[in-house]
Design a binder for these strands. Structure first.
Lengths: 150, 150
DNA sequence: GAGTAAGTTTGGAATTTTTCCAAACTGTTG
DNA sequence: CAACAGTTTGGAAAAATTCCAAACTTACTC
Protein backbone atom coordinates (compact mmCIF):
# COMPACT_ATOMS: atom_id res chain seq x y z
CA UNK A 1 0.00 0.00 0.00
CA UNK A 2 2.72 2.55 -0.84
CA UNK A 3 1.08 3.87 -3.97
CA UNK A 4 1.85 7.23 -5.51
CA UNK A 5 -1.82 7.90 -6.23
CA UNK A 6 -3.89 7.29 -3.10
CA UNK A 7 -7.17 5.48 -3.58
CA UNK A 8 -10.45 7.30 -3.31
CA UNK A 9 -9.13 10.81 -3.77
CA UNK A 10 -9.25 12.94 -6.97
CA UNK A 11 -10.04 10.09 -9.36
CA UNK A 12 -12.67 8.46 -7.32
CA UNK A 13 -13.77 5.78 -9.77
CA UNK A 14 -10.62 5.04 -11.72
CA UNK A 15 -9.85 1.82 -9.85
CA UNK A 16 -13.35 0.43 -10.18
CA UNK A 17 -13.62 1.67 -13.75
CA UNK A 18 -10.56 -0.32 -14.73
CA UNK A 19 -11.88 -3.41 -13.00
CA UNK A 20 -15.21 -3.18 -14.76
CA UNK A 21 -13.55 -2.66 -18.13
CA UNK A 22 -11.31 -5.67 -17.61
CA UNK A 23 -14.30 -7.75 -16.66
CA UNK A 24 -16.24 -6.65 -19.72
CA UNK A 25 -18.99 -4.98 -17.68
CA UNK A 26 -20.44 -1.63 -18.60
CA UNK A 27 -19.48 1.03 -16.09
CA UNK A 28 -22.96 2.10 -15.07
CA UNK A 29 -23.66 4.50 -12.27
CA UNK A 30 -24.71 1.77 -9.82
CA UNK A 31 -21.90 -0.62 -10.68
CA UNK A 32 -19.36 2.13 -10.21
CA UNK A 33 -20.86 3.17 -6.89
CA UNK A 34 -21.11 -0.38 -5.57
CA UNK A 35 -17.64 -1.20 -6.82
CA UNK A 36 -16.28 1.83 -5.02
CA UNK A 37 -17.90 0.76 -1.76
CA UNK A 38 -16.57 -2.75 -2.21
CA UNK A 39 -13.05 -2.18 -3.43
CA UNK A 40 -11.93 1.11 -1.91
CA UNK A 41 -12.09 -0.17 1.65
CA UNK A 42 -9.62 -3.03 1.60
CA UNK A 43 -10.72 -6.59 2.27
CA UNK A 44 -14.42 -6.87 2.98
CA UNK A 45 -17.07 -9.53 3.48
CA UNK A 46 -20.58 -8.36 2.70
CA UNK A 47 -24.04 -9.74 2.16
CA UNK A 48 -26.34 -8.27 -0.46
CA UNK A 49 -28.55 -6.76 2.21
CA UNK A 50 -25.61 -5.13 3.98
CA UNK A 51 -24.24 -3.63 0.79
CA UNK A 52 -27.67 -2.34 -0.17
CA UNK A 53 -28.14 -0.66 3.23
CA UNK A 54 -24.70 0.84 2.97
CA UNK A 55 -25.36 2.16 -0.52
CA UNK A 56 -28.66 3.71 0.53
CA UNK A 57 -27.09 5.37 3.55
CA UNK A 58 -24.44 6.83 1.22
CA UNK A 59 -27.19 8.35 -0.87
CA UNK A 60 -26.69 5.94 -3.76
CA UNK A 61 -29.98 5.16 -5.45
CA UNK A 62 -29.90 1.46 -6.22
CA UNK A 63 -32.39 -1.36 -5.83
CA UNK A 64 -31.76 -4.56 -3.93
CA UNK A 65 -32.27 -6.53 -7.15
CA UNK A 66 -29.42 -4.60 -8.74
CA UNK A 67 -27.19 -5.25 -5.76
CA UNK A 68 -27.85 -8.97 -6.19
CA UNK A 69 -27.26 -8.75 -9.94
CA UNK A 70 -24.07 -6.84 -9.43
CA UNK A 71 -22.66 -9.13 -6.75
CA UNK A 72 -23.39 -12.14 -8.96
CA UNK A 73 -21.84 -10.57 -12.03
CA UNK A 74 -18.78 -9.50 -10.05
CA UNK A 75 -18.49 -13.05 -8.77
CA UNK A 76 -18.93 -14.58 -12.22
CA UNK A 77 -16.22 -12.36 -13.64
CA UNK A 78 -13.82 -13.02 -10.80
CA UNK A 79 -13.98 -9.60 -9.17
CA UNK A 80 -15.46 -11.16 -6.04
CA UNK A 81 -15.50 -14.54 -4.42
CA UNK A 82 -18.53 -16.07 -2.78
CA UNK A 83 -18.02 -17.57 0.65
CA UNK A 84 -20.56 -20.08 1.91
CA UNK A 85 -20.42 -20.60 5.64
CA UNK A 86 -23.90 -20.09 6.94
CA UNK A 87 -27.10 -21.64 5.70
CA UNK A 88 -29.39 -19.11 4.13
CA UNK A 89 -26.87 -16.33 3.68
CA UNK A 90 -24.22 -15.59 1.08
CA UNK A 91 -21.13 -13.56 1.78
CA UNK A 92 -19.10 -11.91 -0.93
CA UNK A 93 -15.41 -11.42 -0.35
CA UNK A 94 -13.41 -8.68 -2.04
CA UNK A 95 -10.23 -10.64 -1.45
CA UNK A 96 -9.94 -12.93 -4.47
CA UNK A 97 -6.49 -14.27 -3.66
CA UNK A 98 -6.18 -17.78 -2.36
CA UNK A 99 -6.90 -17.64 1.33
CA UNK A 100 -9.15 -19.10 4.00
CA UNK A 101 -11.55 -17.98 6.72
CA UNK A 102 -12.29 -17.81 10.37
CA UNK A 103 -16.01 -17.89 10.99
CA UNK A 104 -17.54 -16.74 14.26
CA UNK A 105 -20.61 -18.91 14.67
CA UNK A 106 -22.45 -16.59 17.05
CA UNK A 107 -22.68 -13.51 14.92
CA UNK A 108 -21.67 -14.72 11.49
CA UNK A 109 -18.53 -12.58 11.31
CA UNK A 110 -15.85 -13.61 8.83
CA UNK A 111 -12.12 -12.96 9.06
CA UNK A 112 -9.51 -13.74 6.45
CA UNK A 113 -6.78 -16.27 7.12
CA UNK A 114 -3.83 -15.58 4.87
CA UNK A 115 -2.94 -18.35 2.45
CA UNK A 116 0.34 -19.12 4.15
CA UNK A 117 -1.16 -19.54 7.59
CA UNK A 118 -2.63 -22.85 6.53
CA UNK A 119 -0.53 -25.51 4.94
CA UNK A 120 -2.26 -28.52 3.50
CA UNK A 121 0.40 -31.20 3.68
CA UNK A 122 -1.79 -33.89 2.18
CA UNK A 123 -4.63 -33.43 -0.25
CA UNK A 124 -6.68 -36.32 -1.56
CA UNK A 125 -6.69 -37.00 -5.27
CA UNK A 126 -9.73 -35.58 -6.98
CA UNK A 127 -12.10 -38.26 -8.27
CA UNK A 128 -11.10 -39.30 -11.77
CA UNK A 129 -14.07 -37.61 -13.39
CA UNK A 130 -13.44 -34.21 -11.84
CA UNK A 131 -10.94 -31.46 -11.25
CA UNK A 132 -10.46 -29.28 -8.21
CA UNK A 133 -11.67 -25.72 -8.64
CA UNK A 134 -10.94 -24.52 -5.14
CA UNK A 135 -10.09 -25.68 -1.65
CA UNK A 136 -11.85 -23.82 1.14
CA UNK A 137 -10.79 -24.13 4.73
CA UNK A 138 -13.21 -22.74 7.28
CA UNK A 139 -12.10 -22.55 10.87
CA UNK A 140 -15.26 -22.26 12.94
CA UNK A 141 -14.94 -20.32 16.16
CA UNK A 142 -16.90 -19.76 19.30
CA UNK A 143 -16.10 -16.78 21.41
CA UNK A 144 -14.48 -17.81 24.66
CA UNK A 145 -16.93 -17.93 27.53
CA UNK A 146 -19.87 -18.36 25.22
CA UNK A 147 -21.47 -21.72 25.92
CA UNK A 148 -24.52 -21.68 23.71
CA UNK A 149 -25.03 -24.86 21.74
CA UNK A 150 -25.67 -22.99 18.54
CA UNK B 1 -18.23 -52.33 11.48
CA UNK B 2 -17.72 -55.98 12.44
CA UNK B 3 -20.84 -56.32 14.52
CA UNK B 4 -22.41 -59.62 15.52
CA UNK B 5 -25.93 -58.34 14.97
CA UNK B 6 -26.34 -56.99 11.45
CA UNK B 7 -28.11 -53.65 11.07
CA UNK B 8 -31.65 -53.42 9.82
CA UNK B 9 -32.65 -57.05 10.26
CA UNK B 10 -34.92 -58.52 12.97
CA UNK B 11 -34.63 -55.61 15.40
CA UNK B 12 -35.25 -52.88 12.93
CA UNK B 13 -35.24 -49.93 15.30
CA UNK B 14 -32.84 -51.01 18.00
CA UNK B 15 -29.94 -48.99 16.66
CA UNK B 16 -31.94 -45.80 16.25
CA UNK B 17 -33.71 -46.41 19.53
CA UNK B 18 -30.42 -46.48 21.38
CA UNK B 19 -29.25 -43.32 19.66
CA UNK B 20 -32.41 -41.47 20.55
CA UNK B 21 -32.23 -42.61 24.16
CA UNK B 22 -28.60 -41.53 24.43
CA UNK B 23 -29.51 -38.16 22.97
CA UNK B 24 -32.39 -37.72 25.38
CA UNK B 25 -35.00 -37.61 22.63
CA UNK B 26 -38.30 -39.44 22.89
CA UNK B 27 -38.51 -42.33 20.47
CA UNK B 28 -41.55 -41.24 18.56
CA UNK B 29 -42.82 -42.97 15.45
CA UNK B 30 -41.46 -40.32 13.10
CA UNK B 31 -38.09 -39.95 14.79
CA UNK B 32 -37.60 -43.70 14.69
CA UNK B 33 -38.58 -43.90 11.06
CA UNK B 34 -36.40 -40.96 10.02
CA UNK B 35 -33.52 -42.23 12.12
CA UNK B 36 -33.78 -45.59 10.45
CA UNK B 37 -33.65 -44.00 7.00
CA UNK B 38 -30.69 -41.90 8.03
CA UNK B 39 -28.56 -44.32 10.01
CA UNK B 40 -29.23 -47.74 8.52
CA UNK B 41 -27.77 -46.88 5.15
CA UNK B 42 -24.18 -45.99 6.00
CA UNK B 43 -22.82 -42.50 5.40
CA UNK B 44 -25.37 -40.18 3.88
CA UNK B 45 -25.78 -36.52 2.99
CA UNK B 46 -29.38 -35.37 2.82
CA UNK B 47 -31.41 -32.21 2.65
CA UNK B 48 -34.67 -31.88 4.53
CA UNK B 49 -36.63 -32.00 1.29
CA UNK B 50 -34.87 -35.16 0.13
CA UNK B 51 -35.44 -36.96 3.40
CA UNK B 52 -39.08 -35.93 3.42
CA UNK B 53 -39.61 -37.25 -0.12
CA UNK B 54 -37.87 -40.45 0.81
CA UNK B 55 -39.98 -40.91 3.92
CA UNK B 56 -43.19 -40.31 2.00
CA UNK B 57 -42.21 -42.77 -0.72
CA UNK B 58 -41.56 -45.35 2.02
CA UNK B 59 -45.08 -44.83 3.28
CA UNK B 60 -43.99 -42.95 6.40
CA UNK B 61 -46.50 -40.28 7.32
CA UNK B 62 -44.46 -37.29 8.41
CA UNK B 63 -44.67 -33.59 7.72
CA UNK B 64 -41.89 -31.48 6.31
CA UNK B 65 -41.93 -29.38 9.48
CA UNK B 66 -41.20 -32.48 11.51
CA UNK B 67 -38.36 -33.45 9.20
CA UNK B 68 -36.83 -30.02 9.79
CA UNK B 69 -37.39 -30.29 13.53
CA UNK B 70 -35.89 -33.73 13.62
CA UNK B 71 -32.84 -32.88 11.55
CA UNK B 72 -32.19 -29.85 13.75
CA UNK B 73 -32.62 -31.81 16.97
CA UNK B 74 -30.37 -34.59 15.69
CA UNK B 75 -27.79 -31.97 14.82
CA UNK B 76 -28.07 -30.23 18.18
CA UNK B 77 -27.60 -33.50 20.01
CA UNK B 78 -24.65 -34.56 17.89
CA UNK B 79 -26.36 -37.36 15.98
CA UNK B 80 -25.87 -35.44 12.73
CA UNK B 81 -23.54 -32.79 11.44
CA UNK B 82 -24.63 -29.91 9.26
CA UNK B 83 -22.54 -29.24 6.18
CA UNK B 84 -22.76 -25.82 4.57
CA UNK B 85 -21.51 -25.75 1.02
CA UNK B 86 -24.21 -24.25 -1.09
CA UNK B 87 -26.07 -21.01 -0.51
CA UNK B 88 -29.69 -21.58 0.36
CA UNK B 89 -29.47 -25.29 1.10
CA UNK B 90 -28.43 -27.26 4.15
CA UNK B 91 -27.03 -30.76 4.02
CA UNK B 92 -27.03 -33.08 6.99
CA UNK B 93 -24.30 -35.66 7.26
CA UNK B 94 -24.75 -38.94 9.14
CA UNK B 95 -20.99 -39.23 9.50
CA UNK B 96 -20.14 -37.32 12.66
CA UNK B 97 -16.50 -38.29 12.80
CA UNK B 98 -13.89 -35.71 11.92
CA UNK B 99 -13.67 -35.67 8.13
CA UNK B 100 -13.96 -33.40 5.13
CA UNK B 101 -15.84 -33.10 1.86
CA UNK B 102 -15.65 -33.09 -1.87
CA UNK B 103 -18.37 -30.92 -3.32
CA UNK B 104 -19.47 -31.22 -6.95
CA UNK B 105 -20.50 -27.72 -7.90
CA UNK B 106 -22.73 -28.73 -10.81
CA UNK B 107 -25.21 -30.93 -9.05
CA UNK B 108 -24.50 -30.26 -5.39
CA UNK B 109 -23.32 -33.79 -4.64
CA UNK B 110 -21.22 -34.33 -1.54
CA UNK B 111 -18.64 -37.02 -0.93
CA UNK B 112 -16.76 -37.70 2.26
CA UNK B 113 -13.01 -37.28 2.45
CA UNK B 114 -11.63 -39.39 5.29
CA UNK B 115 -9.92 -37.47 8.06
CA UNK B 116 -6.50 -38.88 7.23
CA UNK B 117 -6.61 -37.93 3.59
CA UNK B 118 -6.10 -34.30 4.53
CA UNK B 119 -3.31 -33.24 6.76
CA UNK B 120 -3.24 -29.69 7.98
CA UNK B 121 0.42 -29.08 8.66
CA UNK B 122 -0.07 -25.50 9.80
CA UNK B 123 -3.10 -24.04 11.45
CA UNK B 124 -3.33 -20.40 12.43
CA UNK B 125 -3.84 -19.55 16.09
CA UNK B 126 -7.42 -18.82 16.91
CA UNK B 127 -8.02 -15.17 17.80
CA UNK B 128 -7.46 -14.65 21.53
CA UNK B 129 -11.14 -14.19 22.26
CA UNK B 130 -12.26 -17.43 20.65
CA UNK B 131 -11.77 -21.17 20.46
CA UNK B 132 -11.95 -23.44 17.45
CA UNK B 133 -15.05 -25.61 17.31
CA UNK B 134 -14.35 -27.27 14.00
CA UNK B 135 -12.20 -27.08 10.91
CA UNK B 136 -14.00 -27.77 7.65
CA UNK B 137 -12.15 -28.41 4.43
CA UNK B 138 -14.25 -28.33 1.30
CA UNK B 139 -12.65 -29.40 -1.95
CA UNK B 140 -14.80 -27.97 -4.70
CA UNK B 141 -14.92 -29.96 -7.90
CA UNK B 142 -16.04 -29.51 -11.45
CA UNK B 143 -16.65 -32.59 -13.53
CA UNK B 144 -14.04 -32.94 -16.24
CA UNK B 145 -15.21 -31.64 -19.59
CA UNK B 146 -17.80 -29.45 -18.01
CA UNK B 147 -17.00 -25.84 -18.79
CA UNK B 148 -19.97 -24.02 -17.40
CA UNK B 149 -19.07 -21.00 -15.30
CA UNK B 150 -21.54 -21.92 -12.59
C1' DG C 1 -24.78 15.33 -30.96
C1' DA C 2 -29.34 12.54 -32.49
C1' DG C 3 -30.88 7.88 -33.34
C1' DT C 4 -30.75 3.28 -32.19
C1' DA C 5 -29.68 -1.27 -30.58
C1' DA C 6 -28.09 -3.68 -26.79
C1' DG C 7 -27.35 -3.89 -22.08
C1' DT C 8 -29.12 -2.36 -17.27
C1' DT C 9 -32.08 -1.15 -13.71
C1' DT C 10 -36.26 -1.33 -11.26
C1' DG C 11 -40.31 -2.49 -8.18
C1' DG C 12 -43.08 -5.93 -7.42
C1' DA C 13 -44.36 -10.55 -7.73
C1' DA C 14 -42.73 -15.18 -7.45
C1' DT C 15 -39.79 -18.88 -5.70
C1' DT C 16 -37.28 -21.42 -2.38
C1' DT C 17 -35.87 -22.81 2.03
C1' DT C 18 -36.77 -22.66 6.63
C1' DT C 19 -39.16 -21.34 10.85
C1' DC C 20 -43.16 -20.27 13.55
C1' DC C 21 -47.64 -21.22 15.59
C1' DA C 22 -51.59 -22.92 17.99
C1' DA C 23 -54.29 -26.97 18.02
C1' DA C 24 -54.36 -31.88 18.03
C1' DC C 25 -51.96 -35.86 19.29
C1' DT C 26 -48.73 -39.26 21.68
C1' DG C 27 -45.42 -40.98 25.06
C1' DT C 28 -44.32 -41.34 29.89
C1' DT C 29 -44.98 -41.63 34.58
C1' DG C 30 -47.33 -42.87 38.59
C1' DC D 1 -55.85 -44.84 32.70
C1' DA D 2 -55.28 -39.83 34.04
C1' DA D 3 -52.62 -36.09 33.36
C1' DC D 4 -48.74 -33.57 31.94
C1' DA D 5 -44.99 -32.71 29.00
C1' DG D 6 -43.18 -33.31 24.78
C1' DT D 7 -44.28 -33.88 19.61
C1' DT D 8 -46.44 -33.40 15.37
C1' DT D 9 -49.04 -30.99 12.06
C1' DG D 10 -50.73 -27.90 8.19
C1' DG D 11 -50.77 -23.56 7.10
C1' DA D 12 -49.07 -19.03 7.60
C1' DA D 13 -44.97 -16.28 7.95
C1' DA D 14 -40.25 -15.03 7.35
C1' DA D 15 -35.95 -14.52 4.98
C1' DA D 16 -32.99 -14.71 1.01
C1' DT D 17 -32.88 -14.70 -3.69
C1' DT D 18 -34.52 -14.71 -8.47
C1' DC D 19 -37.65 -13.50 -12.12
C1' DC D 20 -40.05 -10.29 -15.11
C1' DA D 21 -41.56 -6.85 -18.29
C1' DA D 22 -41.29 -1.95 -18.65
C1' DA D 23 -38.45 2.07 -18.29
C1' DC D 24 -34.02 3.79 -18.61
C1' DT D 25 -28.77 4.15 -19.91
C1' DT D 26 -24.84 3.41 -22.40
C1' DA D 27 -22.20 2.73 -26.43
C1' DC D 28 -22.11 3.06 -31.38
C1' DT D 29 -22.87 5.01 -35.78
C1' DC D 30 -23.18 8.68 -38.83
Amino acid sequence: MSNVRPEGSDRPFSQTLRRLKDAGLRPTRQRLALGKLLFDAGDRHVTAEQLHDEAISHGIKVSLATVYNTLNQFTDTGLLREVVVSPGRSYFDTNIDEHHHFFYEEDGALKDIPRDAIELATLPDAPVDAEVTRVDVIVRLRRAGDNRSQ
